[in-house]
Each structure stands twice: as C-alpha cells, then as structure tokens.
Write a protein that binds this DNA or RNA. Structure first.
Length: 277
DNA sequence: ACTCAGGCTACGA
DNA sequence: TCGTAGCCTGAG
C-alpha cells in the first residue's frame, strides 16, 4: 500500500522492498548510503529515502511526483511475491531468494542506463561511479546542489578532447559514438521498447562498445525487459558452480533478469561473508 | 612493479 | 566462426 503524507510518500515494504538490496546490487550508480537511508539522483530529481516501521519513505515527495517518476522507477506495481514464488521452484534460486528478497529491479532512464553500462565494461564499481559523477558534474544540469545525468543532445555536442575530463579511457569514443547516433535519430532508444527482446538486443548492439552484456544491462535496468539475463564474470562463475555447463536461463522465464540479480546479490554476499555455497 | 576490474573491437588463424 | 590480444585508468 502507498500513503501520501505531508512529509512524503509511505510505501509498505512487506519485506519486498529493501533499499540496501535494491541500491547495492550493481544496477545503479547514483545512489549513496547515508546515515538514515539512501540519497541519489534519477530523472533529473534528487531523492532521499529511508526505511522505518516497515515503510519505505520517499522524503518530501508528493503524489504527483510519485506517479510520474518513482512508481515506475521502483516498479512498484509489480507483485514480487508472485515473482519469488515462481523462482523458488528452482532449488538454487530458492536459496538466493532467501538472501535477496526485497531487491527490486529498477526501471531507469534509457540513455543514462546505456551510457552507464558502456562505462562499466572492464571496470569496477567505485570507478564507474566516479566517472559517472564527473560526467554529470561537467555536462549535466545543476539541480540545486546536485547534477542531473547529461542529456544525449549535450553529449552529442561534446568534443573528444573535452570528454577526456571524465577519464573513461577507450570507452570515451563509445560514449560519443552512441550519443551522436542516438541524437541524430539513427538509433532510437524509445523504439527499442516496443520491440521483442531479441530484436531490441540486436538493435542496441549496433552501437559501438555495446555487446550482449551491456545491451542486456540496458534492457533489464532501463527498459524492464525482465527476460534479459546479463552474463558478467560473477554470474558466469555462479552459474558454473550451481548448474554446471548446460545452463539455460529460460528456466526462470519470464523473470530471468530478476533471477540474475538475486543470484548476483547472493554470490556477492557469500564472497563478502566468506561463507561457502 | 604488477594484476585486476561486472567487455568490446579488431584481428588472426 | 572461433579464439584472444589490447585497450584507459586507478586501486590494491
């Protein structure tokens, strides 16, 4: 349930909305943990949120902003208890769900997601965050103490030398190529939304620096294609470990992408805590 | 100094 | 078509 109060939006979590799990599973790069919760920027807005008494509270957010942005961003109309029920039919996944329950796959801005995951290739999370932060500071709009993610049209107009300030190395030419071709209309990010998943994947990989993995991340975290199953090194190792060589993610259909996130979060947790699977 | 990090392109066989 | 070197950079 959702309640609109003077000081913000109150969402009943029911164990199916954890800020920690949602923001720290590698799907987004612009939210930071604060003393009381999390704070970050999406769709040109700053958001502070925290958990209290079984609610997730979006501080200072009104009904209109919730409906226009955050409801969709957190995919709050999706019933995760149904998703989890289906995924738990698989024994390995049942364990992963046990650790990852409350993680929600976000629906972020398409361009921001694509650009962020171009930056992510052969890179680690702290550095990805640092590059994106510099990108926003230099080319985004000042929205009152914070910076929005720069618009495609802005990046399309940036020169190669000028972009070096973000220190993304060989990825910079990919970013520029993508921005220019998207800005010109040659590649239409919104059009991909109406395609079937395999077609959309092929479409995005026409961009330089966008292979299957980056396309899957963009489609999962920016489009809501929940069948996209990005295979990074962690997932490859985990899949090998639990399922062996002949794994087919279609066993999780139509929620392969959510399963991927659960598995990823679960493996990282094990790595952090030094437990064995 | 050297490896590694949540891939991709370009090139060779 | 398949395999892999090289790529920018910064942290450990």
């Amino acid at each position: 349930m959702v309640y609109f109060k003077n000081d913000g939006v109150y969402i009943t979590a029911d164990g199916l909305f954890s800020l920690e799990k949602t923001f720290l599973c590698g799907q987004c790069f612009r939210f930071e943990k604060k003393d009381s919760g999390f704070s970050g920027i999406a769709f040109g807005r700053q958001l502070s949120l925290f958990e209290k008494d079984g609610f997730v509270i979006l501080r200072g957010v009104g009904e209109r902003e919730y409906d226009e942005i955050w409801k969709n961003y957190f995919d709050l109309e999706r019933d995760y208890s149904e998703v989890n029920k289906l995924l738990c039919r698989d024994k390995v996944m049942a364990r992963a769900v046990g650790s990852s329950k409350g993680l929600r796959v976000l629906r972020q801005d398409k361009w921001e997601t694509l650009c962020s995951f171009i930056i992510s290739q052969n890179n680690n999370i702290p550095r990805i965050k640092s590059i994106i932060s510099t990108l926003c500071r230099n080319f985004g709009n000042d929205i009152g103490g914070a910076f929005s993610f720069p618009d495609v049209s802005v990046i399309a107009g940036v020169g190669e030398e000028e972009l070096k300030v973000i220190r993304a190395g060989f990825r910079e030419k990919y970013i520029l190529d993508a921005a220019r071709r998207i800005n010109s209309g040659e590649i239409d990010l919104d059009a991909a939304e109406k395609m079937e998943y395999p077609e959309a994947r092929e479409y995005l990989t026409r961009l330089k620096g966008v292979g299957g993995k980056v396309a899957d991340c963009a489609l999962l975290f920016g489009y809501g294609f929940l069948e996209a199953f990005p295979k990074d090194v962690w997932i490859k190792k985990a899949v090998e470990k639990y399922y062996g060589d002949n794994f087919d993610e279609s066993i999780f259909s139509p929620y392969g992408g959510i399963a991927q996130q659960y598995l990823y979060y679960y493996e990282r947790l094990i790595a952090k805590n030094g437990k064995t699977g």
